[in-house]
Design a protein around this nucleic acid. Structure first.
Lengths: 221, 221
DNA sequence: GTCACTGTATGAGAAATCTCATATCCGTTA
DNA sequence: TAACGGATATGAGATTTCTCATACAGTGAC
């Protein structure tokens, strides 16, 4: 991770987006962090030192079960807070968050302003709205998902997770995330390859026919 | 709806639960409302005059689509806020909430204390925690759901919605909520009747074998 | 009363998805 | 090096779920 702790830059940034979110001027506590694709942003079980605000990039949210199984819980796209639960909830241990593409985040040193944040009504109101909208969005998403065959959901998933036209997720993980058997996932991927939608390569699946993929995705809405 | 506006009672209530949630003493703005089963608690599209806190009972959350279709979005059980989004979000119109069983709610007259609530950090923090936990719960619930056949999900659903051992939901609605076709829902209900788990009567389906239903539900965890 | 509309109901065949079995490959560890 | 666990692969058959078609009862509009 590349820390660009240039607070001078942030301090002078006229368009600093967090200004609209916080009542408190958080610039003195804010750094700019850059995570490469695949890099961990929040490590599971660790209490983070920062409250992150994802400015650009996409990330995934993980959870490891008691039995050691890892589940992909959700996707996160900018703009979005990361680690907000850990800020609010004393008991809450962090879920894992990993960058899919390069991610740029504002990182607020919560150790230095936790109390002030928890008393910043503007921030708290923003967070409540953010959380309740996210909940509504999730619910809508779920109920839509349930209603379509895997091929469509898979198209959506591939579009969401591919980087530079390459899809390289773990089949086992994805099967769990999408709630289907590993076997079935392979069937459907094989179908997409058969279709000419994907091409299997050494290093992953290359999107060969973006139009086809998008059409599947659209039928899905 | 029976309003029991006995603020004297509330004012004297030593164990008033909202005391732990709000920094502000909301007792002067709080009434006790009682809704019968099937009664509307929040009417869709209307801006509610109260922020409700469900003390006991179960309710369901509805949404009407542009095309007029009604979808059952979710279930709500005590303790739970109702109408919190509408308090926070200016633009947000209310979803519909309808009582399943008799519901007892504290009803806070937001017109009289909206500003103060939106500046009550204790309340806002509580609400953030509540929302984020709800989101986590939903996600967990959702991913579990995906993985089980309708018979199990149906058992869970019947246990959740039955009142006094009678199940009377609309099949069309339920099919939509559970994300299956109407046809398939009927198949599975027929199976449960075949089983001897349910008995079809004039006024709905009677739970004939609670044990069987619970076993289906348990296999589902 | 008739017409549309919605909910309920049932059948038949097709598609989606699951279960179980088996095999290979790869990286880790003993 | 051998053994092992995890990920990838593929086949066969069973189960779940969907699509389409059809029918009947209730309700509100006209």
């Amino acid at each position: 991770m590349k820390k660009e702790c240039l607070q001078e830059n942030i301090a002078q940034d006229e368009h600093f987006v967090l200004r609209d979110i916080f009542g408190l001027d958080v610039r003195p506590f804010t750094e700019l962090h850059r995570f490469a694709a695949e890099e961990d942003i929040l490590r599971e079980g660790e209490r983070p030192n920062y409250l992150y605000y994802l400015v650009s990039g996409r990330a995934k949210l993980y959870l490891t079960h008691d039995n050691g199984r890892i589940t992909l819980i959700n996707f996160l796209g900018a703009p979005c807070f990361l680690g907000e639960m850990e800020l609010l909830d004393e008991e809450k241990y962090s879920d894992g968050v990993k960058a899919i593409t390069e991610c740029v985040c504002y990182a607020i040193r919560i150790n230095e302003c936790r109390e002030r944040l928890l008393n910043d009504t503007e921030f708290l109101r923003y967070l409540c709205r953010f959380l309740s909208r996210k909940a509504v969005g999730n619910t809508a998403n779920y109920s839509r998902n349930q209603s379509y065959p895997l091929k469509n959901r898979m198209a959506s998933f591939i579009l969401e997770t591919a980087v530079n036209g390459m899809y390289r997720e773990r089949h086992t993980e994805v099967a769990e995330y999408l709630g289907v058997t590993y076997r079935h996932l392979l069937y459907v991927i094989a179908e997409l390859v058969q279709d000419g939608t994907l091409i299997k390569t050494e290093s992953g699946y290359r999107i060969a026919d973006l139009g086809k993929l998008k059409r599947l995705f659209i039928d899905f809405n």
